[in-house]
Amino acid sequence: MEKFQNRKYVVLIITIIIVLIVVNLIPGFNNNLGNFIFKITSPINGFFIKIGNVFSGFFTTLFSIRGLAIENNDLRIQNMKLETEISSLKEIKRRDEALLQAKESLKDLVEIKQVGIVIWKDIQENQDWILINKGKDHGLEKDMAVVSKEGSLVGKIFEVSKDFSKVMLLTNKESVIATLLENGRNEGLIKKEKQGGLFMDFIPRSEKLEIGERIITSGMDNVYPKGILIGKIESIDFSQNQLFQRIVVFPVVDFNKLEEVFIVK
């Protein structure tokens, strides 16, 4: 009887494997199944992510209480300085408004296609992708660039289903971005290091670089529009090559705090 039972389960496992192979061969099946499961589970996920962020914020505050007294004193001094600056800033603001108007006319550099809400973050590996609540029905396509509300690069659309899209973050090990140093104008590629950080290499040693210099997209990969801020130079490594220097890049986006993103073209 037990032998029969075991044989039954072996047949069941083989059947499951065959079914899995077949469903993966049906075009669009995985996308539709994903879309269906995302629809059911996304409200619960969003709720848990929000609670988790509250939890994280609470403990961060708790650990920083000791520094609060010193910070408070510093803030009082800063406040006095800021009061005096406000009056001069009002004048600058008037000028900035005119500048903004001019910037509006240059808007065709990047066109915002959609605004997506982050409804899921990777819970399995390195948190290097997110799920947003916009998909094919909202005009999204694979390889569209995604930016934060500050206009900094988040990543690109990796997979699109009917109502949802998976966004591969620039910290994903598969991500390669054509970049440009804002001042030096050196071109290169930003990739992920094995240790987890981002780096840009093959910059000639003769180039003088500054810590904190901004790195932007070059547009050479035909995925990311030119001019989007990626990060800043965190450190420069001369040890690995005689001819080139290697830059460790600090991404400006705080991926843990992403709540909404903008899909641009």
Binding site: V23, F29, N30, D122, L131, N172
Partner: peptide, 8 residues
């Protein structure tokens, strides 16, 4: 809920 689009 993984980045690879393979069920199974």
């Amino acid at each position: 809920y993984s980045l690879n689009n393979i069920i199974g």
